[in-house]
Amino acid sequence: MAPITEVEGRRLPLSNLEKVLYPATGFTKAEVLHYYATVAEVLLPHLRDRAVSFLRYPDGPGGQVFFTKNVPPGTPDWVTTAEVPRSEGPSRMVLVQDLPSLMWAANLVTEFHTHQWLVQNPGEADRIVFDLDPGPPATIVHCCEVALWLRDRLAEDGIEAYAKTSGSKGLHLLAAVRGASPERVSDYAKGLAVEAEKAMPRLVLHRMTRSLRPGKVFVDWSQNAARKTTAAPYTLRARAEPLVSAPVTWKEVEECRSPDGLALTAPDLGPRLTDHGDLLAPLLDPEHAGTLP
């Protein structure tokens, strides 16, 4: 029988705590749960009121990996859910609003992915995101170069950008915006991706065409579409090591010289939070939201 723990008055069965989920380092499921409990204070505000898609890997990244968008079977009745519009018709998705819900979801072994809008207002985006994905032999070093160009270009429009690692080989840029539909944000993001390609034609690609990807950074603007989701800040990723989609400073971006220079794992996050707090906290403050031109 799975051990039962109590989290803020909710009883949670926790299963297979000794299972190794990250074989490269021997990182166990118990350590996954400990990690999420450690970062809950900064993670939860970035999940709250956002429908969550789960990328599940219950036997580790080498096992079955699958997306769960609808409310999973067996979800406790105290976990908040919401009806979310989709092109094929509305569906019901999970909201991770509190620590018990977070630990319940973490016990499923999951990456957390969210939309760029809140469930209260799916017709208005409050985030813009760029996913910078390097095609080998390009690396995150090249992503950082592109990120700095995009940061400065966004600043010209009065939009302040923040960076986080993808938790894989790339980089994410995020900014808070107001008063625009997901379609409008997508169009704006695509326009900037096209501008970046014109400014750095040997380095940047704004199209997803696989044959064009080697040696370039694909600026994926499409994740701003209403139906799309992006890995949430502080989520673990399904990789051989417990890599995290972790916020980084612009100084770290500017000084990145190694393909592994921004690879941050779960054990790194405790000390970083002590030193920096939540580097993405301004995204949660309406005062920092920019308006698209």
Results as ranks from 00 to 15, higher is better:
40 A>D: 11
239 R>F: 07
23 P>I: 06
221 W>F: 05
265 T>S: 14
165 T>Q: 01
227 R>G: 15
135 G>C: 06
253 V>I: 06
83 E>V: 14
60 G>Q: 04
39 V>Y: 10
113 H>F: 00
34 H>D: 10
106 A>L: 07
288 H>D: 01
258 S>H: 15
247 P>I: 11
12 L>S: 00
179 G>H: 11
190 K>H: 10
88 E>N: 14
47 L>F: 07
64 Q>S: 13
216 K>N: 14
290 G>C: 07
107 N>K: 02
267 P>A: 02
73 P>N: 05
154 L>D: 11
183 E>Y: 02
49 D>F: 04
102 L>H: 11
111 E>Q: 05
44 L>N: 13
54 F>S: 02
169 K>Q: 15
264 L>P: 03
271 P>N: 09
250 W>C: 03
52 V>P: 12
197 E>P: 09
43 L>F: 05
221 W>H: 08
180 A>I: 00
75 T>I: 10
290 G>K: 09
140 I>M: 10
50 R>Y: 08
90 P>K: 08
156 E>N: 14
33 L>N: 11
293 P>L: 12
227 R>M: 11
194 V>L: 05
206 H>S: 14
27 F>Y: 12
60 G>K: 11
167 G>R: 07
62 G>C: 08
253 V>S: 15
164 K>C: 12
56 R>A: 06
225 A>P: 03
96 V>L: 13
78 W>M: 10
195 E>N: 12
251 K>H: 12
105 A>K: 04
80 T>I: 13
42 V>H: 05
26 G>D: 13
122 P>D: 04
221 W>Q: 02
60 G>W: 11
110 T>I: 03
103 M>Y: 12
112 F>H: 11
165 T>L: 10
141 V>C: 13
69 K>R: 10
104 W>D: 04
42 V>W: 02
153 R>N: 04
15 S>R: 13
185 V>H: 06
89 G>M: 13
228 K>F: 07
286 P>A: 08
116 Q>D: 01
236 L>A: 12
105 A>R: 07
236 L>F: 01
